[in-house]
Design a protein around this nucleic acid. Sequence first.
DNA 1: GATTGTTTATATGCTT
DNA 2: AAGCATATAAACAATC
Length: 301
Amino acid sequence: ELFIKGILNVSRFPKIIIKLHHGYKWGLIFSVFSLSLDQELIMTNNRVKGGFSGLLAESSGVPRRRYKRYTTGTYIGLIAYAIQDSPDKMLTFKQIMKKLEPFVLGDKKGIENNTRVCLSSNRCFVKVPVDPDYPNPKKNFWKVDENGITPKMFRRHFKYLINMFPGLSIQTQQVDECEDNAPEPLIPVCKVTERKSEGKFTGPFSIESLLKSDREVKRLEEHPHYTDAQLGRSKRKNVYEYEAVKCYYPVSAVGCELASAKRPRLSSGPQFRQFLPPHVTYDHHVLFSSPLMYDIRYARW
DNA sequence: GATTGTTTATATGCTT
DNA sequence: AAGCATATAAACAATC
């Protein structure tokens, strides 16, 4: 039995609220372009038979790429690893893509798109302006916010990254409890040939990293440039609950005494490159041994 | 025009 | 099976 309960007009396409009689469960929401009254919806395992594309008048007809075919881990896990394995635990989008090269295979545009979507839509990833003095919504580092990692996300994406996230130690117990359905460790799907001229090792074990002092980050009370840019940029409409993407600022951004810690511009030097030396290959040992941890303190605003 | 980031739509994988 | 989570495609905006 199926009843149309109502129609929601909250976005470009109307959503039909359909009540299904399962004895106890009512209220599934589907989105369709058009659905004539005599069309039949057949549902099995929470899916409409044939998919909604069969109901669309103008379906693209292009088969979608097979799900999870080109990566060795989940996007969340891979991105989190890439970021956390960097000296400052924050990378630009381009740096993330460079670092993920060995782990993803296939359509580059699609992978970039997926990575952007993942960064943008998951609370565990937050932005940090590259240049706090002149914030630009399109020039950010991405950072992992451990507060945005739910227990479920931890079990699914972060278990093998536990050494990279000391702040998640509370959840260590849960690691043991889910030993049986543990995800596979990250394994590179391809080898990336390194150019020797770019072979400077800037990973977590580099001399620079080992000698680097902690970089404190604290709450930014107010920064008109960036705040305005963020507000002005939002194009989301018809949204009832909107929580702005969290942003972080280093201490230097608010005129504290750590002026020397001011983050250099991206173009200023090679210190932000993420190339491994030719003799180092990605494997479990390299990926999941314990890197040097920074005690970066920060607050959201 | 290229890059970066946000959002929507929908297919599909995973957990319960 | 049901429900949630993730992957994929694409449109679009802002900025360089």
